[in-house]
Write a protein that binds this DNA or RNA. Structure first.
Lengths: 158, 158
DNA sequence: TAGTTAGTTTGTGTAACACAGACTATCTAT
DNA sequence: ATAGATAGTCTGTGTTACACAAACTAACTA
């Protein structure tokens, strides 16, 4: 697999495969999530919040790459279920610092257990250790080069 | 829910992360794809066709997990651009065997090169070898436990 | 005090679907 | 041969997950 005429090597882009597998996963996950009153987008938000920690609402919108106005609605739903908390930032009282609640973390963990069968179906071609590798790569990519979103914001402002 | 010894280890589910990264990738890819007249869904279809080889239209719909009627439209667009070919199956003349054309494979490769910057942005936290690992895992997962869709069909029928 | 920013609310529009119905060509079993 | 099923097509309709705009409040900043 190592290459000398690097030029002739086919390019390996993950985008489409990522999209494809995410869709397959999402379709099945919907069925598991529905009885709990969650939809895939909620799970993504919770997962991102867990992976990167609480952060101002705007930064969350940036992470999710969603329009701020739509994030409001998403958070309203999550907050109504007490899975997420909006706290006023003490430094800047306009800001809402969004954080996963204990209930949210628990719910997320619970749902993830229920999602075992889904993952088994979609990632059936991978063995346990390959799945773990995949998870870690995805997590690392999702976390990004910057350790936390608040630091990212600070960096931008400085 | 009886009391498992609740494994202290958190469960590692890829679904949400997959979804999240796929979205980030897709949003950026749209801009690159648009000038070529392609949208993300087209890229997914082409990628799946390359990964799993030509197959009857129904099997393609099953792979993409899309409704058959919508696949018709998607293929119409791809065929209009000569990226894909529908050939009548000789065994069963009702069937359309869908295959990537040479032009399609070339276009796909070309677009993938153009997507380098996108991938760099989204997977920036991963180094080259990690990205290669990720690609191979995704490809393996996408191919599934069954080597090719035609064989899958044969297996089902036997 | 004026201007700006974070978040909210209420719209409007669009793209990517699912799903239903009717149709054609073709296959299969009787 | 004929009847029924099957692959694909076409033309709808509805839903969801968004983007984007406008107008508003509360709070910060100059």
């Amino acid at each position: 697999m190592s290459s000398w005429p690097v030029v002739n090597q086919p390019v390996h882009r993950c985008g489409a495969l990522l999209d494809h597998l995410a869709r397959r996963m999402r379709l099945r996950a919907e069925a598991v999530l529905a009885p709990v009153g969650l939809r895939p987008r909620h799970l993504v938000a919770l997962t991102v919040l867990r992976a990167r920690g609480g952060c101002p609402q705007q930064a969350l919108a940036a992470m999710l790459e969603m329009d701020g106005t739509n994030v409001v609605g998403l958070l309203n739903e999550l907050e109504a279920e007490k899975l997420v908390e909006r706290r006023r930032s003490s430094e800047d009282r306009r800001r809402h610092v969004v954080e996963l609640t204990d209930a949210g973390a628990k719910q997320l963990a619970k749902v993830e257990i229920a999602l075992a069968a889904v993952e088994e179906e979609v990632l059936g071609a991978l063995d346990e250790s390959q799945r773990e590798t995949l998870y870690n790569l995805l997590l690392q990519a999702a976390r990004g080069r910057v350790p936390s979103c608040t630091e990212a914001i600070d960096a931008e402002l400085s």
